[in-house]
Design a protein around this nucleic acid. Structure first.
Length: 509
RNA sequence: GGCCCCGUCGUCUAGCCAGGUCUAGGACAUCAGGUUUUCAUCCUGGUAACACGGGUUCAAAUCCCGUCGGGGUCACCA
């Protein structure tokens, strides 16, 4: 099979692979304490590809930096992937033939390759003290030179090096970048060429003998049989160093595709958790957007199916995803679009499925306590039904329904205004309260009665509705008025109407 | 600063490889109108973009060059 870039889909250009080997892709996050949206999208695209190609989706923890590696951080990633519905075929939790799946446990695997690299001279020892490296950098910055190691230790002879090591010096080991250039045929960006003169002799092995990221990935990707690497564009410059290592070891280089970065809302650099809460997946999990909507939205950042189709099921996304249609330019997050899509998905759900999701949020927020009485269950069901079409995310229910659970509703300014708008409002509220039967009639009957009530008083329905809504909910927006009334029940309606009457009659502050 | 990547409505994008069918399509947002007791939903309609300059060509959003702008990366981090 021929090697070619698959930047464009043309039907007959079917191949994004260059071998007949089964596709093996990986998601290799670093447990930093949160799952970045960009990482989530990377995981998603890899998962799409694996599922579509009948390949394997491997999860690997890049936790060689022990300081940041905590169990909580790992759990955040596992839970994030679960929420997204991305099940790894192999990983720390599920194991597999190519384990272990955490770099911190793979040191023995690295040792052999490191020894081979040292023996072949691809790695050379660097005895430069950190202070020298630091001052070198400072000088280069000041003189506007490229910030690169000056390769001083390449001049140290093997014999010298051996004796210095014997004398107790502990060198770091650098990659001896060969002459020439490297051409990357990127799956999303096409051919990219970099001259080796522009590549630094980076440190690959620490003084303590452990490999640096750029070495560990190469060894892992090779030993795990990874065929395709889809990752963020921030790895593009690393890629050339990695390819050099692959070639030095005589290993087959996987196919690479570098995804465009997700930028801050103002287009200012990549999203960082410090500056943007929406950088972390937990942000979306907490509000609880519809997960299927979320992956739909995420898939649309940097990828598209055609010029029209946006709403797609998971199965459709798997079927339609193609690396060739991944964009090259960075994208900003459009959270409002997520809200729109999620609201769409939720509206299409049967109420019976919305109810438990919504219920769970009310419990979690402490608005209702488990176990719920039959009356409370009925009330929650009524709230869910009433707010269903307004939800952009399941967690929205909490703010939407606070007015129900408060002893008396908090009055919004506009609601208070509606209450005081007419001098006759206080009397109207009291009079209507007096007409209320317990239990309250069905909404249609209540409305009919209310309209008659208005006609009898010679007022328009609108004059009635706004103050009543204010008294009942303290808000100006919400479900149909009589639904609100029934959620509260006759007794609480009366209480609120009377209090509303008092507020309406009180002097403006 | 070196190297690398990118540049279509406010935002996400289709179109670019194989130049004409593009008076540039869709979605979100926004504006106006309709439905509605509010909000939401739903329906209708509108505003809004090929970064700039050259070149190639009968013809350029599409190809080439340059400029400008944005981003990434340059740790004994990942």
């Amino acid at each position: 099979m021929q090697i070619r870039s698959a930047r464009f889909d043309s039907g007959w250009r079917l191949s994004e692979t260059h071998t007949m080997k089964p596709v093996r892709v990986r998601f290799a996050p670093s447990p930093t304490g949160y799952l970045h949206v960009g990482g989530a999208r990377t995981a998603l695209f890899n998962w799409f590809y694996a599922r579509q190609q009948g390949g394997s989706f491997v999860l690997r923890m890049e936790d060689t930096d022990a300081a940041r590696n905590t169990d909580a951080a790992r759990q955040t990633i596992f839970e994030g992937l679960r929420w997204l519905g991305l099940d790894p075929d192999e990983g720390p939790e599920q194991g597999g033939l190519f384990g272990p799946y955490s770099q911190s446990e793979r040191q023995p695997i690295y040792a052999a390759t490191i020894a081979e690299l040292k023996a072949s001279g691809v790695l050379y020892p660097c005895f430069c003290p950190r202070e020298r490296l630091a001052s070198l950098r400072t000088t280069q910055e000041a003189t506007r030179q490229p910030f690169r190691y000056d390769r001083a230790c390449r001049a140290v002879s093997a014999a010298d090096a051996a004796s210095r090591i014997a004398a107790g010096e502990v060198p770091a080991w650098r990659l001896r970048v060969p002459e020439g250039k490297t051409v990357l045929d990127d799956l999303v960006r096409g051919e990219i060429t970099v001259e080796h003169a522009d590549i630094e002799d980076i440190i690959l092995v620490r003084g303590d003998g452990t490999p640096i990221y750029n070495l560990a990935v190469v060894i892992d990707d090779h030993s795990m049989g990874i065929t395709h690497v889809l990752r963020g564009e921030d790895h593009l410059t690393n890629c050339f160093k990695q390819i050099i290592i692959f070639k030095a070891m005589g290993w087959e280089v996987p196919r690479y595709g570098h995804l465009p970065l997700i930028l801050g809302p103002a287009g200012e650099g990549k999203l960082s958790k410090r500056k943007h809460p929406e950088a972390a997946l937990e942000h979306y999990q907490a509000r609880d957007y519809h997960p299927e909507a979320f992956i739909n939205w995420l898939a649309l950042i940097g990828w598209s199916f055609d010029d029209k189709t946006e709403l797609m099921t998971r199965a459709e996304l798997v079927e339609r995803f193609s690396i060739g249609r991944i964009n090259k330019s960075g994208a900003r997050l459009n959270i409002e679009k997520l809200a729109s899509i999620s609201g769409d998905y939720i509206r299409r759900m049967p109420l019976a499925e919305v109810l438990p999701r919504v219920r769970q949020h009310l419990v979690k927020a402490g608005l209702v306590a488990e176990p719920l009485s039959a009356a409370a269950e009925a009330q929650v069901a009524a709230i869910a039904a009433a707010e269903h079409e307004r939800l952009k995310a399941f967690g929205d229910i909490v703010e939407f329904s606070r007015w129900v659970f408060a002893a008396q509703p908090t009055m919004e300014e506009k609601a208070l205004k509606n209450l005081k708008k007419d001098a006759a409002n206080a009397a109207m509220l009291r009079d209507w309260a007096a007409t209320l039967a317990d239990p309250l009639p069905l909404t249609a009957d209540m409305e009919a009665a209310a309209r008659e009530f208005c006609t009898a008083r010679g007022i328009g329905f609108g004059v009635f509705v706004h103050p009543v809504r204010a008294a009942l909910t303290g808000r100006t927006a919400g479900p149909p008025l009589f639904d609100c009334a029934r959620i509260l029940g006759a007794v609480r309606c009366r209480e609120r109407l009377l209090r509303g009457a008092d507020l309406a009659a009180s002097e403006p502050a």
